[in-house]
Amino acid sequence: MSAKTGRRLLLALLCLLAAAGFFLSVLTGPVKTSPADLWQLVNGHASGVETTIFLDLRLSRAVLAFLVGAALALSGAILQGYFQNSMADPFVIGVSSGASLGAVLALALGFRLAFPGFSAQGFMAFASGLGIVSLVYLLSLRKGAFKIETLLLTGIAAGALASALTSFLLFMRSDSFDQAVFWLLGSFQLADWTQVAAVAPWFAVCLAASLWLAKDMNLLAMGDESALALGCPVGRVRKAFLVLASLLAALSVSVSGIIGFVGLVVPHWIRLLIGPDHRRLFPYAALAGGTFLLYSDLIARTILPSELPIGVITAAVGAPFFLYLLHQKR
């Protein structure tokens, strides 16, 4: 089987899985519904309540989970290429925690307006996520190379600090328990179409930009000097990728809180399956990430009578995987 057939097969499989995931998500919930009810909806015979449950509650949630998963996986794929290390991910590097801190800070200070099409929360999440990733970048860069231990430790320390500040801010507000769970462990419980509409265009922009720059990411993999010699504007490309990765992480965090390990596991699997070419890795990782989070959310909301935070599910899958990778490295 040639590499091309293999990729096509994978693409078909992922699309099939995603479609099945959407179908299951729309059909499953605390209120019992059958495919026949869904068929009535398609034919326009469903009752108002059913329509709301199918479209406004379940479908919007599934679409949002898919978008967030795609954004996180793409952010992870970018960071892994950027740091040339398969253990980088927005959660491990501390970007997610930083973004969460920004969002909570915006809430606590009561910021309302920022950029058009971007809430104050989203903007602050982006700014502080970018701040954390730049800090980690500067601290772990030694003589033009990244030492993996420094990178991970700096990321974990910066993330822990950001999480502690987030907890502090939430603690200062008395009505904070559900907020704390939301911002620190993630949830799609209150997903709606306005959130989808806020995230989707930015995600599309980031995906397009990363595809456009994917060739340069391939050059960076050969080392900055070689890339420079081959005509890649290394400095600018690196900055662009850092902004993209933070933007993607901030988008996810501002609508769903911190969801760990998606950006770690998914790009890693995809790289094993289709190789390290970023032109393909980016879109495949996004598709797979969306599918992964779609199923994680399905599990999170059905496994127990009351919902689990989705971060619990992704960490249950991702953390052992992270440990396995760490073991392999040694």
Binding site: P30, V31, I53, L57, D175, D178, Q179, Q189, L190, S306
Partner: peptide, 30 residues
Amino acid sequence: IGGLVNPNIERILARAPDLVIAFRGNPLRV
């Protein structure tokens, strides 16, 4: 229909209530 901080919106909707009486401890976002 769920707990205080995590009432399930889908369950509430399916009961088709004429009125929902909430209190300050229910999350504002819900």
